[in-house]
């Protein structure tokens, strides 16, 4: 039977205490290691549900053995934390292709990101933008039944965001994220029985009926902390490797072309991007845009989580 524990691997005592305090509310035992050797010893005695690792440690050559052991032990997720001055490490972390949960924000945002992630894993309940918004936040739902509705719905979203007092910058980020995620769900998600993505090369301005399983859902809401945008499809074809490759995509800066650009642009246009995957059943992507802070006070890099539903 699984030990009800969480393991923190971080060299800084203050951060250890902070993360321990945040994750202690789950009721799980929280173990702490200063470095990887100690963490591996702890890991050999038990199987923590969740592991939280310092970004610098995650980049060390010895981390491979640790992540492999965590995977063998059935750890649901390894979260990586980055210090505020370590934003330059993000491309390297993305380049590893193994970090499924990167949290870059400081308190109080870190506490929100950590607890929601932990609760999703503990309760095995991954889906739904509600988990990221305050109680009572009104959610607006649009179901696309034709591809041509994308432009109208995206425009409607921007106008509604502006009408609720948000800045043009926030509205423009929301437009970009919603447009790219809907476009991906309409054109890249559908596969036939042989696994071929049959709508991938259909020009984006060609009308397509989105009947039955092809329908795409957009939900959004704002709780004065976040503008949250959720886009879902019913194919569940997006996988962890494609996501990590897209997030790391260097050619977004260099050429701007190629598949996966939509995910990469969405990541760079939001503060936190969450992927909820139920393979073969559904994919849900949630983008959070922090509306509390002006650009100059926001962390220049973004957090992300990739959750995969266990069958």
């Amino acid at each position: 039977m699984r030990e009800h524990s969480i393991l923190i691997v971080h060299p800084d005592r203050k951060t250890q205490r902070l993360v321990q305090r945040i994750l202690g509310v789950t009721g799980y035992r929280v173990d702490i290691a200063d470095e990887l050797e100690q963490a591996i010893q702890l890991m050999e005695q038990q199987a923590p549900l969740l592991v939280v690792v310092d970004g610098t440690i995650a980049l060390s050559p010895e981390a491979d053995a640790f992540f492999t052991l965590a995977s063998t032990k059935g750890t649901e997720a390894c979260m990586t934390l980055l210090a505020p001055d370590a934003g330059d490490h993000v491309p390297r972390i993305l380049g590893l292709g193994a970090v499924t949960n990167l949290l870059v924000h400081q308190m109080p945002v870190l506490a929100e990101e950590l607890t929601i992630t932990a609760h999703k894993l503990i309760h095995r309940d991954l889906f739904g933008v509600e988990k990221y918004l305050l109680w009572g936040t009104e959610l607006h739902t649009h179901t696309l039944t034709r591809a041509s509705q994308r432009a109208h719905i995206v425009q409607q979203l921007a106008e509604a965001v502006r009408a609720r007092g948000q800045s043009a910058r926030v509205a423009s980020m929301a437009m970009l994220v919603a447009d790219e995620l809907i476009s991906n769900a309409v054109h890249n998600a559908p596969v036939d029985d042989a696994g071929a993505h049959y709508r991938k090369d259909v020009p984006r301005d060609v009308e397509i009926e989105l009947d039955g399983k092809h329908a795409v859902t957009l939900r959004w809401g704002c709780d004065a902390r976040y503008l949250a945008i959720e886009v879902g499809d019913q194919f569940g074809t997006l996988d962890r490797e494609t996501i990590l490759r897209s997030l790391a995509k260097n050619d977004v800066r260099e050429s701007g072309a190629g598949a996966g650009m939509g995910i990469s642009l969405s990541y760079r246009s939001s503060d936190h991007l969450v992927f909820n995957l139920a393979p073969g059943k559904r994919t849900e992507i949630i983008a959070l845009i922090d509306v509390r802070y002006p650009p100059a006070e926001r962390t220049p890099v973004s957090s992300y989580n990739v959750f995969v539903e266990r069958t």
């Binding site: 921007a158 423009s172 790219e180 050429s255 701007g256 072309a257 650009m261 642009l265």
Partner: peptide, 13 residues
């Protein structure tokens, strides 16, 4: 200009 998406970016390039 109020909005540019990834396909617009590709066209722009």
């Amino acid at each position: 200009i109020t909005f540019i998406n990834s396909l617009g970016v590709r066209d722009w390039i």
